[in-house]
């Protein structure tokens, strides 16, 4: 069986690492990479290198919700299926409450929550009735207090909630919904959240990608609907 895999946020960080890792999975026939940063996507494709999977990159701003139905429809038409949807695109602008602007709130929720929900809704139209998997990336910030990260942390709490709800709501359709919450991980986003941190001392995106790949394999059928913490113990 070959599978078509769509990954958002594939231009950097965990999204890029997941793209590289999924390209190595033997049953991935098509890999569709989506992100706002076109140059970053091309770099991801270059890092994937030779693969038997057909790789397509799509540069678009996922906060443009109106464009998502056409995006997903186009992917399905071009590749004939959508079997795996990895929602990894994320945004963070850490500020104290009084410095958190409406624009900050809107952008954070648009990228982290609204676009994820729209991607899932549109993809499910094509995934129903087949064994498919949706994996959403939240954060350990979703479930613990993070002063100064109010928009980001609360948006990630929404990701956990929507993932758990959809795991139940989509039960019986053949679609499993996963949610992983990475702890401190050396990504560009983490640099914004914790600029004082040395990225060499914390978990690497490739380690999260390894967990993601294991969850998306066909044999895994027990960890959906649970907030899976991915954290490197020192």
């Amino acid at each position: 069986m070959s599978r078509v895999c769509v990954i958002t946020g594939a231009s950097q960080g965990i999204g890029r690492a997941a793209a590289i890792r999924m390209a190595a999975e033997p049953d991935i026939s098509h890999l569709i990479l989506v992100a706002r940063n076109g140059e970053g996507l091309e770099e991801t494709k270059r890092m994937i290198g030779a693969t038997k999977a057909k790789v397509e990159s799509i540069a678009m701003d996922l906060s443009d919700l109106d464009a998502i139905p056409e995006l997903v429809k186009g992917i399905h038409e071009r590749h004939g299926s959508i079997d795996l949807l990895l929602n990894i695109a994320g945004y963070a602008e850490p500020k104290s409450l009084l410095d958190t602007t409406d624009e900050n709130i809107r952008t954070t929720y648009a990228v982290n929550v609204f676009s994820m929900l729209a991607m899932i809704r549109e993809a499910v139209r094509y995934m129903r009735g087949r064994p498919g998997k949706i994996l959403n990336v939240a954060s350990t910030a979703a479930t613990t207090s993070r002063p100064g990260w109010i928009a980001y942390a609360s948006s990630k709490a929404a990701v956990v909630s929507l993932s758990q709800t959809l795991a139940d709501e989509l039960a019986g359709t053949g679609i499993k919904v996963y949610v992983v919450s990475p702890g401190r991980c050396a990504t560009e986003l983490r640099q914004k959240l914790a600029p004082e941190e040395d990225p060499n001392t914390i978990m690497q995106p490739s380690q999260v990608a390894e967990v993601i790949a294991s969850l998306l394999r066909g044999g895994e059928n027990t960890l959906d609907g649970q907030n899976i913490i991915v954290r490197q113990q020192s």
Binding site: P94, L97, D99, R146, G148, E196
Partner: peptide, 16 residues
């Protein structure tokens, strides 16, 4: 600090 953000803007307990 080796980072671009001026130190006085770094957050401590969620506040600069």
């Amino acid at each position: 600090m080796g980072k671009p953000a001026p130190k006085q803007f770094l957050l401590l307990g969620g506040k600069p």
